[in-house]
């Protein structure tokens, strides 16, 4: 069976999802279930960290679904480390999507601060999935820093522009010893399938499911596309060639 392993967990589904932008917690839960996702990221800023009842967290109580708290909102390593420690206590998980984007306009990640925080948090026992640019060198550095996977972006968060970083994602996938999860910018099931065909280990999709007219159906569509892309990758895709394969080769006289 084709299992994805990250740190101490195994995943049958290679579609990770998010919790933002849905029109209700009920709809969010239905869409996540339909997607078959087993890992869902939750923004700390949306969660009741004081441990009272949290309606969103209650709705995520779905068998087989794991929480991946994220630090969206922090602007540097120091803030990320502080938030991560509180999240571990409040949510009872040491898994963390490390997200440091000081620029609130395009929400682009700060590689320097992410690397710094990753070193510290790994020492502190966190399972870290850092959200980063499609920067192959940074990915290797994060490996050294103790990350458990890398999450390079396809395009800026929420833009639905697909894999505009495609060529760099290919290098990351080629070089990485860690699972590669393509995060951000995946706007349609075909983008997700494309990432999986490239050899990504998983994708994370939120906006495209949450803002669909029918999030539940869209969750299902992404499930199917991720599975299709993965099977295609494992089956060995036919090579794309710039030249036509002539039916009467010119050099056959040599054999």
């Amino acid at each position: 069976m084709d299992i994805l392993r990250i740190a101490d967990k195994e995943f049958k589904s290679r579609l990770f999802t998010g919790t933002g932008k849905f029109n209700s917690n009920e709809m969010m839960a239905e869409a996540i279930q339909a997607s078959g996702s087993e890992l869902v990221t939750v923004a700390l800023k949306r969660v009741d960290m004081k441990g009272n009842n949290d309606d969103m967290i209650d709705h995520l109580n779905i068998p087989g679904l794991n929480l991946l708290p994220n630090t969206s909102g922090v602007r540097n390593a120091k803030e990320a480390i502080f938030a991560a420690q509180l999240a571990r206590e409040a949510l009872g998980t040491n898994w963390l999507k490390l997200e440091i984007h000081p620029d609130p306009k395009y929400l682009l990640p700060d590689g320097e601060e992410t690397l710094k925080a990753c070193y510290e948090l790994a020492k502190d026992g966190f399972v870290i999935l850092p959200y980063i640019h499609a920067d192959p060198v940074l990915c290797k550095k994060l490996e050294d820093a103790g990350a458990s996977a890398v999450m390079p972006l396809g395009s800026p968060i929420g833009t639905n522009q697909g894999l505009i970083t495609r060529d760099f994602l290919k290098i990351i996938i080629e070089q990485s010893n860690l699972p590669v999860v393509v995060d951000a910018g995946i706007g349609s099931p075909s983008h997700a399938a494309e990432a999986m065909e490239l050899g990504a280990d998983a994708v994370l999709v939120n906006t495209a499911i949450a803002v669909a007219k029918n999030p539940k159906q869209m969750g299902r569509a992404f499930k199917m596309s991720v599975e299709a892309g993965r099977i295609a990758y494992l089956s060995g895709l036919a090579k794309v060639s710039a030249y036509a394969e002539a039916s009467s080769p010119l050099t056959s006289f040599l054999s």
Binding site: F22, N23, S24, N25, L44, K45, R46, V47, D48, M49, T71, G73, V74, K78, E79, F82, A83, L86, A87
Partner: peptide, 19 residues
């Protein structure tokens, strides 16, 4: 807000995100 097809978000920040 709910009837209009939106969710009312009461919390979208946390003091833990700043030092």
């Amino acid at each position: 807000i709910r009837n209009k097809g939106f969710e009312a978000v009461w919390k979208d920040w946390d003091q833990c995100l700043v030092m």
